[in-house]
Amino acid sequence: MDIAGTPSRSRPAMIRLEHLTKIYDLPPDGGGTGQVIAAEGVNLDIPSGEIFGLVGPNGAGKTTTLKMLCGLLVPTAGRVTVNGVDVERHPEDAQRHIGYLADFFSLYDDLKVWEYLDYFARAYKIELRAISARVDYAIGVMGLEAKRGAFISGLSRGMKQRLGIARTILHDPPVLVLDEPAAGLDPNARVDFKQLIRNLHREGKTVFITSHLLADLEELCTSVGIMEKGRLVRAGPLEQIVREATGTRTIRVRLASPEFALISWMGAQPGVVGVQPDASGARFRYAGSDTDLAVLVRALVTAGAQVYAVEEVTETLEQAFSRLSRGEVM
């Protein structure tokens, strides 16, 4: 799926997944075909500068997809390119462009914070002269200055998560691949983390992120993909996904006086479904266009209703995901 659905988004793909498939075997008593298709023919183009959120229930194949993207798992079929580099054929070159954070990870407890970052700076082959500046930058961005000389074994869970993220941005990769990055962060750290991602986005980074915290993703992401049983069922700009998930728009009408029989009037109009009473008015789902809606509102006023507000109620990503995962939307 190409998430560059609109002309403004038609930038060259920074991440490209082509027919990406991963099959795992089940033990013989696992039933069925004896295999799990963790990712099935996933096609995805993510333009440069996008914050792409991948959501889906546990076992949907998100982590498997991320690991194939980073070159950690060999796909059963398909191809991954990052910044035009084939991840499987030229892993060292591709990894220059990727900063990766796993969902469950450990650090080297017997190193100090700066030593840990220094190690990865060397491993990512940052120019020797620039290493200390990059280490200082990563430490500063993640607020680890006070822990610079501390052993990692003595850090709290949240601090370790910050250090993990610091490692991810250390070599200034154009692509960040983050698997549940906010897990384990306290509320303040989550706010800081979201701000960091926004800053990185402003710098032009492409971020590929998975999280169960859909509200966070909704705040951050410019586009999302929804995975179900290994298939990428939807991908695109956030607002488009939400719109597709609902199929119709939810409209709320508020009246100045309650005398008008709004519920019955609305229920009789074409294109209006699911009318429900709402505080001083009603809420309903409407399949028509903006022009149709304007005509409807004019008819309502002409019918004698004292309309003082008409607003479109935006569904949250969480609601959209819930609809999609329940199969309400095909």
Partner: peptide
Amino acid sequence: SNTFDFQRVTRLT
């Protein structure tokens, strides 16, 4: 201890 994957994704040959 899940640290090996981070080494694998570095540019170390």
